[in-house]
Write a protein that binds this DNA or RNA. Structure first.
Length: 572
RNA sequence: GCGGGUGUAGCUCAGUGGUAGAGCGUCACGUUGCCAACGUGAAAGUCGAGGGUUCAAGUCCCUUCACCCGCUCCA
């Protein structure tokens, strides 16, 4: 464990300079801008050698602790060892997958901006007051006139999700009426079908019966300049409705047309749900169990921002843990707590990490519980940014895919149901509930970098990265104090030994150039936890010095103990 | 999408219309030998990009791209 001293000048969260962290990331080859020599491309970042290895270490730690040896061998709430299996599902799935998951529909709300007040709202929430007819006009005629008035601009507008709400707003909000020049307004009783709402209004000297309905799209598109703003009543302030396509569209097939349109996934989870039945049918897994998937996802973020935090291409590590509905709350709590513990175990141990349970009104309609593991990034401070969401998704996803695909996705549980005379159980058929710990690997890397970044002016190397040894991209470095007198040979031998033992976990470096202090400083910036130096005494008594990155302290250990020392500190 | 800021060597930055610069870093050689040591030398730049004004543009104007900050958005 790397000690992050809470009293050190830069460990207190948000006061770390993001500019300096970004500069170090580039200088040492952690993170580069994508397509840098062409000027970069908005929302995309590449990893350099150290960053790529570091992210691999994070992904492998996840895989080890979630798939191969879930929860470090800990027992789940059912008293048994937690069992998980991996899948690797594709970035491109059948387009219907995204209809079933709700991503396609949900992503496509056209938005309108008020250029003056800078307010943005969903276009279909813009409700207009259309003049339908004067007082006393027969309802039937009024309706006919209103119908033919489609495409006509409304007298005034408000933002509300339904016509009913809009009428309420118009009637209740005095200020609104004043701003809009309405002298009097009364709601008529809703029509029996309640689909159309009418009010009687006086605007200026005109008395009229008006219909309240959403401003039709053709009106907004072609005559946006004439539609009054819902906030100021002014015309010409509204933009045309703009579609925010958060899904990445692509074409499948070399000669494909729009008919072959597909989407790049916005999350890996759906690939898991779609393969749930195949995994159950072929793998001898029994509920409760999890299916994990790591991989790249894409979202056309409205505003990519904050270094790699909100990128358009990012990697997720998601687990979908399936269980009986009765046990789902217990598993939810179990995973929520373990995931928090896990992030702590790899170096996010301070106050900068929190577990935040979502409020009821924050929850998706299908979720009965969601928690975020959040980190206080320098750019979110004093607030926090999400690293991982642990969601209780109920049976929402399997239900959706069952409905859209027409394939039964329920599970026959032979450990449940009444006990039969022969001692076996009758069994129970049910749609499993699902707990989803979904982590962002790129956000994880960024959090680990921010947490590790330390400035200590009292040191000869004031800037250092205090990575947890498990995450550090460089595991160890070997330095011959002098590049002569037999030291390089001993160093070469030690380097070979360490490379053989630890080379699969990360880089092992050897450096004979320049002063020893400069070599230590280089390794500090790269976050290498231990440096082994061969000096004059090594040749006499077969001992080397080990320098600890975080303390700068040195101890002498026997040359043949180096391997054991590193195994103990770094793991093999 | 709006507003503000930034963009010159790998990094930090200077350069207010007249020859492209410094420090650090990197590399080579030498000296040194346990904490960014010293000397000598070298490499490294489409001054973010495109256009314009001008005898002359890193510098002034326009457009554009990227990043940062604040709004907005965030299934």
């Amino acid at each position: 464990m790397t000690d992050s001293n809470p009293s050190s000048p830069t460990s207190s969260s948000g006061d770390k300079p993001m500019d300096a962290i970004m500069a170090l990331c580039k200088r040492r080859g952690f993170i580069f801008q994508a397509s840098d020599i062409y000027g970069g491309i908005n929302g995309f970042w590449d990893y350099g050698p150290l960053g790529a290895q570091m992210k691999k270490n994070l992904r492998e730690a996840w895989w080890q602790d979630m798939i191969l040896n879930p929860c470090w061998g800990r027992k789940g709430p059912n008293g048994d060892r937690v069992r998980c299996v991996p899948v690797e599902t594709r970035i491109i799935q059948h387009p219907k997958v995204w209809e079933a998951s709700g991503h396609v529909g949900g992503f496509n709300d056209p938005m309108v901006d008020d250029k003056e007040t800078k307010q943005r709202f969903r276009a279909d929430h813009l409700q207009g007051l259309y003049q339908a007819g004067g007082f006393g006009e027969p309802l039937a005629e009024m309706l006919a006139r209103a119908a033919s008035a489609q495409g006509v601009v409304p007298l005034c507008t408000v933002v509300a999700s339904t016509s009913g709400e809009a009428v309420d707003q118009l009637v209740k909000t005095r200020k609104l009426q004043k701003d809009l020049g309405i002298r009097a307004i009364t709601a008529r009783a809703p029509l029996t079908d309640a689909a159309r709402m009418f009010v009687d209004v006086e605007i200026g000297n005109v008395k009229a019966c008006c219909e309240v309905l959403a401003v039709p799209m053709p009106t907004l598109k072609d005559r946006a300049g004439e539609v009054p703003s819902p906030f100021t009543g002014k015309k010409g302030a509204l933009t045309e409705p703009r579609q925010f396509n958060l899904m990445f569209k692509t074409i499948v097939g070399a000669t494909g047309t729009e008919d072959d349109a597909a989407y790049l996934r916005p999350e890996t989870a759906q690939g898991i749900f779609v393969q749930f039945k195949n995994v159950v049918d072929t793998t001898r897994v029994k509920i409760p169990f999890g299916i994990g998937n790591t991989g790249t996802s894409f979202r056309n973020e409205v505003t990519p921002r904050n270094f790699t935090f909100r990128s358009r291409e990012f990697e997720q590590a998601e687990l979908e843990f399936f269980c009986h509905p009765d046990e789902s709350q217990a598993w939810y709590a179990f995973w929520r707590d373990f995931r928090m513990e896990w992030w702590k175990s790899i170096g996010l141990a301070g106050d900068n990490l929190i577990l935040r349970e979502h409020d009821k009104d924050e929850l998706s309609h299908y979720s009965c519980g969601t928690s975020d593991v959040e980190y206080r990034f320098p750019f979110t401070s004093p607030g926090f940014g999400e690293l991982e969401g642990i969601a209780h998704r109920g049976d929402y996803d399997l239900t959706q895919h069952q409905k859209h695909s027409g394939v039964k996705l329920d599970y026959f549980d032979t450990t449940r149901g009444e006990t039969l005379p022969n001692g076996s159980r009758k069994g129970e058929r049910y749609l499993p509930h699902c707990i989803e710990p979904a982590a962002g690997l790129d956000r994880g890397v960024l959090a680990l970098i921010c947490e590790a970044y330390t400035v200590d002016p009292s040191r000869p190397s004031p800037e250092l990265m205090k990575f947890h040894p498990r995450i550090a991209p460089i595991k160890a470095a070997v330095f011959p104090l002098m590049d002569k007198e037999g030291m390089p040979d001993v160093a070469e031998k030690l380097y070979d030994d360490l490379f053989a033992a630890f080379g699969k976990t990360g880089f092992i470096e050897m450096d004979a150039k320049q002063s020893i202090g400069k070599r230590y400083a280089r390794m500090d910036e790269a976050g290498c936890p231990y440096c082994f130096t061969i000096d004059g005494d090594t040749l006499k008594d077969q001992t080397v010095t080990v320098r600890d990155r975080d303390t700068g302290k040195q101890e002498r250990i026997a040359l043949d103990r180096v391997n054991g020392f590193l195994t103990e500190k770094v793991g093999a």
